[in-house]
Design a protein around this nucleic acid. Sequence first.
DNA 1: GGCGAGCCACAACCTTGTGTTGTGTGCATA
DNA 2: TATGCACACAACACAAGGTTGTGGCTCGCC
Lengths: 316, 316
Amino acid sequence: MDLDAVRTFVAAADAGQFQEAAAALSITQQAVSKRIAALEKDLEVRLFTRTARGAQLTVDGQALLPHARELLRVEKRADASVRPGRRALRVDVVSRRIAPAVLLQDFHRMHPEIELDVVALLRADVDEAINAVEVGTIDASFHAVAPQQHLPDAVRTARVIDEPHQLLVGPRHALANADAVTPAQLVGHRIWMPGIPPGTEVAGYFDELAAAFGLTIDFIGPVFGNEALLAEIADSSELATLVGERTRYLWPDSYDLRRIPVRDPALVYPLSLIWRDDNPHPALAEFRDYLRTRRPNPPNTEVWTPTWAQWAAPRS
Amino acid sequence: MDLDAVRTFVAAADAGQFQEAAAALSITQQAVSKRIAALEKDLEVRLFTRTARGAQLTVDGQALLPHARELLRVEKRADASVRPGRRALRVDVVSRRIAPAVLLQDFHRMHPEIELDVVALLRADVDEAINAVEVGTIDASFHAVAPQQHLPDAVRTARVIDEPHQLLVGPRHALANADAVTPAQLVGHRIWMPGIPPGTEVAGYFDELAAAFGLTIDFIGPVFGNEALLAEIADSSELATLVGERTRYLWPDSYDLRRIPVRDPALVYPLSLIWRDDNPHPALAEFRDYLRTRRPNPPNTEVWTPTWAQWAAPRS
DNA sequence: GGCGAGCCACAACCTTGTGTTGTGTGCATA
DNA sequence: TATGCACACAACACAAGGTTGTGGCTCGCC
């Protein structure tokens, strides 16, 4: 199916005649006729009934029309996702399942007119992300940024989310019925966080967390996907994992998994936005405004963050 | 943007190298290289970084990939909407705002795997619809079908929805705060139903309704679209209109419109499904099953239907 | 009823595009 | 350093798609 033919089809359907469509597309009437004929031949249906004063959609044509329009819309969005200068705002999230992605969904709901592209540079480390932001291939990225992190001149960071963790356990787990737990209560329980590549900022976070409270946190084990992890936890009386408070997992209700808040202190993952100060993208300013004005729920408990993140309190 | 190029891009991204993608598409590696190069030139970005052992997506490529896949999905659906023999189930509704359309949405939620196309043969009368069903350009149609209606041999009809009307009024209307109204109470109030073409089955219904209860029902007035009608009603202390119970209109909350049930008797619009008995489309059987098994809310009041519809009670 | 206007289809022709074959280049690996 | 692998470039052939020119059909008008 040729998109030029589809465009021509829509133009002809709107105009009600080939002649006018041809004028609108700056081609001859014969070219329109040819394109439509080719499309009809390709689809093996008649799309228009030709009359002496125009062309009228057949039922098949009527059925195709909305799909054709959708096709052109998607093409436009695809184009807008990459074309330099006027492409959509491109924001990098480490994973689609953690808080920044949820935030972006919310932003999109509030500003549906703003073209937005969420990419996940899987396992990209902070330096890679900073580099991508400096070069301009992405407009913004969410990462845990340490204060000693070296930043190029034009690149800025700001702490924007403090995401508290919750314990995720199956119904047979010893803590399954707790209303809340403290990190001290987690000592001796096995916490499983598979799929976190060693040496990354995320691994570093959990390493320091384990050391600070004497916890047992395992990164080992092959990753069979999220679904497998959840199934494992659902069945186990020992395994548990940590998930962000705002993350949205989908799992069968039958798993009967429970999210249990962690407090005294809450285990907070501090995330910063990375962006380039002289990036002229209008949507970037909008997005930063959105981040600035939204009210984070203030935690009503002590919080723990890694030492490198204690240099500055999160904006409240 | 050329869809073949997009297809090639996706194949190359999946394969991780041009060579394998070429094999999958049954063309030469050089052709793949050319297509990708053309796409890159068209979009003015580099999509792959070429290395000695394959091609890897750039960030721009990663951003484009989901859009590209979506484009191919939509193309497939567009194709499926018309291609004879294996096209989607095509169901005709008089309007997207009335009960059958709502029913189809529900059916789609229950069977998302079934390709479904809802077309609105605007102002088509029953004969036209029956003809389209017989010819096979549509698979099923919802209409009010009178018993004396002539049907071709293979065409069947069955009464499937009895849609009760509700009164839609603005906050300043005399009946705005009623919990329910009877047709008798509507005498003297002006009911406005613009946009119904005279001579159609719908107009006939309201004509008989007006005659039966002595109501004032206006069809006159230019149609400025639904939005205009709703705005008019919201402001008026006199105007009201009738809407189906299951219809879903969207209007600003600020309008403060109220839907008021009509009872003793309820004003029911009887709708039948029209289909061709020997239509082999598997989804048609599914849809008829769905219609058969769903439980209509039995009205707990007397009902009024036009005389021609009183030949048979709706299936309960 | 004849005739012109409007609209679409068909034919001929030409340009452009797109696939193939053949060859070159760069990089990783042995 | 030699070899294999993967992609790019060049030359060529053929197909696709656009334009101009023309004919047929239908509708409205004199």
